[in-house]
């Protein structure tokens, strides 16, 4: 087994002490597991799925949606080129004063080596969406097929309660649409037209945004979320929103 690309068997051999590279890699695994590198709230390796969903059954047996659209953000791969933002803006006609996705910047001055990391954020398409509960007119709703949180613009009264209800600052009022707007995984602009990826995932040069069907074992997002070697976490799990956007490193 080579978790993280190092030969663990080699570490056990007394006659062949691990090389410096291997030792560093091994230390890194420890740090990842103990959460030192985690940008969001780290869920321990063993319970990463459980914390993100209500129960493990939610994940292993019943996906409420088909396809259950989901995104895994491989945080350490993001280089802040902002092509995702640009692609999103053009594809979804996002005005200059708003955004559906953005990249946050975190400085860790005490870190060894790399001292800055980038954290892409977008609507988490929660399974328990506070925005949908708060909307008085069902303008915001969770699509029964895909699980995407969508907005029926003509029903939006512009009270902006959903903007405050969202723990991820994913919503803004769009003057052109006369309604609150947010990421819908490019459903109207790409997915419904046969494209397999969102604009941001398609353009990302570092494959930091992995998009797919969480209920399909063949999908990359399925494989990334269901492995237990590398920690997977979600943003603000304490709010209990059960997001469908996951974060990981490595």
């Amino acid at each position: 087994m080579k978790p993280g690309g190092i030969d663990l068997d080699n570490l056990k051999r007394d006659d062949a002490p691990p090389s410096g590279v291997e030792r560093r890699e091994f230390m890194k695994i420890g740090l990842v597991i103990t959460g030192v590198f985690a940008g969001g709230t780290l869920l321990s390796v063993a319970s990463n799925i459980r914390r993100a969903f209500a129960s493990p059954e939610d994940v292993y047996k019943n996906y409420p949606y088909k396809p259950h659209y989901s995104m895994v953000i491989r945080q350490d791969r993001c280089i802040d080129c902002e092509r995702c933002k640009q692609a999103c803006r053009i594809t979804n006609h996002v005005p200059e004063y708003g955004y559906r996705t953005r990249i946050l910047e975190k400085d860790v001055p005490g870190a060894i080596g790399q001292k800055r990391e980038f954290i892409p954020v977008l609507c988490n398409q929660c399974n328990n969406p506070p925005c949908v509960r708060a909307c008085p007119t069902k303008a915001s709703y969770k699509d029964k097929t895909t699980g995407i949180i969508m907005i029926e613009y003509k029903k939006c009264i512009g009270c902006k309660t959903c903007v405050l209800a969202c723990p991820y600052n994913a919503r803004y009022f769009d003057d052109e649409r006369h309604a609150v707007d947010k990421c819908n995984f490019c459903f109207d602009t790409r997915l419904s037209k046969g494209e397999k990826l969102t604009a941001c995932a398609a353009i990302c040069p570092a494959h930091a945004r992995v998009f797919g069907d969480l209920s399909d074992p063949a999908s990359e997002v399925y494989q990334l979320v269901h492995q237990i070697v590398k920690p997977v976490w979600v943003m603000r799990p304490e709010v209990g929103t059960k997001p469908n956007v996951f974060y990981m490193k490595g």
Binding site: R133, P136, G158, T161
Partner: peptide, 23 residues
């Protein structure tokens, strides 16, 4: 303050969300 107050009059009636405090 509300951006589309006239929509409220219509959709509060024909599309009510009973879990919404605003409603």
């Amino acid at each position: 303050d509300i951006e589309n107050p006239f929509r409220m009059a219509l959709y509060n009636v024909i599309s009510p969300n009973l879990t919404s405090n605003i409603w």
